[in-house]
Simulated scan of single mutants.
Amino acid sequence: MKDKIDILVTLDESYLGPLKVMLTSLHQNNRQTDFRIWLIHERISSEKLRSLQTLLKFYEMELKVIKVPQDLFSDAPTAERYPKEMYYRLACGNLLPESVKRVIYLDPDTLIINSIKELWEVDMEGNILAAATHSGLTNITKGINNIRLGTNRGYFNSGIMVIDVEQARSKVQIEDIYDTIRKYSDYLLLPDQDVMNYLYGEFTKEIPEEIWNYDTRQSSAYFTRSFGAHNTHWVAGNTVILHYCGKPKPWNEKSNNRFTLLYLHYQQLLKRYEENI
């Protein structure tokens, strides 16, 4: 039997639609790969979960649902900027069963347009995480974030990560996360991402953003930085994960960049699949 790739998602009910689109793209472009999807949530309805289960059964993907008790993170600082879901990915070592050794965490606002297998097999080199930085054209944000967070390395995007779950179980402490938020809440712009960089940035392996975490807002920067090599044809053949960072999201009618049409294609594909299940 083939080993399954473990995919982690942590979200609330409002992101189930984008999650289905993302998983449709994962299925469509990884037909020879088996997946186990771990969904960690607090209050998604049974009806919505059954709908997701039906779709993933059609895709021949295994769905594992972990419902977090409402009192589990009762001491956590929470607000609109600190939703509980942000803790689930950082604390996944405490939530996933011991049998899970490694996961790929994926934000739902992504598309997987080529094989993800190489990311699953990446050499972590002893690190807890593997993630990409979004450096833009000049990388000026690196310096700003270093000053803001008191760090001296690249600023990693937490939307796509490989997590060594075995290491996370022993090294990621939920109280450290709580303390960081309580002490530095006035300086945190993207709370979960800031906390991840502040606490675990030195234990993170950098992976190429143009391949594994392509910011769809920055296509001109990628093109310029590569002296014209990373054009649309290059992206189609080399990029694996498109990340629709920022707003408007591609499912919003206000979105109209060069990657919106591709997203809508997978959205329509999902609709046709669901009509025939």
Rank of each mutant, 00 (worst) to 15 (best):
P77A: 06
E80Y: 11
R81K: 14
Y87L: 15
Y88T: 09
R89S: 13
L90W: 11
C92I: 10
C92E: 10
G93E: 08
L95C: 09
R102K: 15
V103Y: 05
I104P: 03
I104G: 05
Y105I: 02
L106F: 15
D107P: 02
D107H: 02
P108G: 01
D109V: 07
D109S: 13
T110H: 06
L111P: 11
I112H: 03
I112F: 02
N114D: 08
S115W: 01
K117I: 07
E118W: 00
E118A: 15
L119S: 01
W120D: 13
E121R: 12
E121P: 00
V122K: 03
V122E: 11
D123R: 04
G126A: 08
G126R: 07
N127T: 09
N127S: 11
I128G: 03
A130K: 02
A130N: 05
A130S: 13
A131C: 06
A131N: 02
A131R: 01
T133N: 05
H134V: 07
H134Q: 07
S135D: 14
S135M: 04
G136H: 06
L137I: 14
L137D: 04
T138N: 03
T141L: 12
K142R: 14
K142P: 00
I144T: 10
N145D: 13
N145C: 06
I147E: 13
I147S: 10
R148P: 07
L149I: 03
L149K: 07
G150I: 11
T151D: 00
R153N: 07
G154I: 01
G154E: 08
G154N: 11
Y155T: 09
Y155D: 04
F156T: 01
N157W: 01
G159I: 03
M161Y: 01
M161Q: 14
V162F: 03
V162K: 09
I163M: 04
I163P: 04
D164R: 05
V165Q: 06
V165A: 05
E166L: 13
Q167G: 12
A168Q: 09
A168Y: 08
R169V: 11
R169C: 12
S170R: 13
K171A: 12
I177C: 12
Y178Q: 08
D179W: 11
T180M: 15
I181V: 15
R182D: 13
Y184R: 15
S185L: 04
S185M: 02
D186F: 12
Y187L: 15
L188G: 12
L189R: 14
L189Q: 14
L190E: 08
L190S: 13
P191S: 13
D194E: 07
D194A: 05
D194Y: 03
V195T: 05
V195N: 03
M196Q: 05
N197E: 07
L199F: 03
E202Q: 10
E202H: 11
E202F: 01
F203A: 11
F203Q: 14
F203T: 10
T204A: 04
K205M: 03
P208I: 05
P208N: 01
E209S: 15
E209P: 02
E209C: 07
I211S: 00
I211G: 00
I211R: 01
